[in-house]
Amino acid sequence: MLPLLVRRLLATIPVMGVVALAVFGLLRLAPGDPASVIAGDYASPDDVVRIRSSLGLDQPLPKQLAIWFGNLLRGDLGTSIFSGLPVTTLIKQRVEPTVALATLTMLIAVTVAVPLGVLAAWKQGSWIDRSVMVFAVSGFSMPVFWLGFLLVWVFAVQLGWLPVQGYSPIAKGFWPFLRQLILPAMTLGFVYVALITRMTRASMLTVLREDYIRTAYAKGLPPAGVLMRHALKNASLPVVTIIGVGVALMVGGVVVTESVFALPGIGRLTVDAILRRDYPVIQAVILIVSGVYVLINLVIDLLYVVLDPRIRY
């Protein structure tokens, strides 16, 4: 186990190296200029030049890269060009809403999707199966923001049941926290309901064809018991994988959802930073998000080894 862990951890280093280089390279070639954005809409051309040099943006690229890497190694993610705040502070401010949104989304998705998938597999070929599958496919055929706006329109604007936007930290009470997150989590959850339903159905179908399931039926065990105790337990492993795959997919959804609901999360931090070319923030956030993705997949790989004795690396 330990050698495996070490080997896998070492393998993430080149991956993160590629990410870091790619991000740095991409951004420095971009035509947008943070100095002009900072100077404001009404600044004179001279001011822009002066601000650019005060930010060190007129330094040669290799030097900027060396400075950045040096700081990274010392654990310094840099300082936002605009607010002058350390990137770590900015990220700390934004972590809670994003983690909360992602967790709640996964929770909703799993509770809805697993029963749906089991049902579809059990009634394979029936109209129930077909409608569940069409519903599932529609789930990831919809633009997240489109669904989000329609949900806001119905539940917040027309019915007035839920808030339109914003976030309430969990420290200020669980109920307000939950109320703010229901619509965003429903919006984002749709995609995952779709994914997990399909995954559950598929792996259930495979398991249901196995001999021991037939034996269980032959022994006269009740079908519900067979489904839950024998089949679902064995079908759940591939479902865990989807959470790993889902993280990468989720980032895109999170970015969009946070914009629709004005949630102050990592996603909006990133988009704002990209649109105004706040290099240190973009670099740090993309690096961290990619790191989290790599880490989650690493954990899932290891879980596999732990959970399924048949798998050896």
């Binding site: 991956v15 993160m16 590629v18 971009a30 990468a248 895109g252 970015v255 070319r277 790599v294």
Partner: peptide
């Protein structure tokens, strides 16, 4: 495969967004 792993670790929407910030 190292490059592929690296690129796949960057969420595609963010990567595309950063690329679009590069060009007209």
């Amino acid at each position: 495969m190292r490059v592929v792993d690296g690129l796949m670790a960057i969420p595609s929407v963010l990567l595309a967004l950063a690329l679009m910030a590069l060009v007209k």
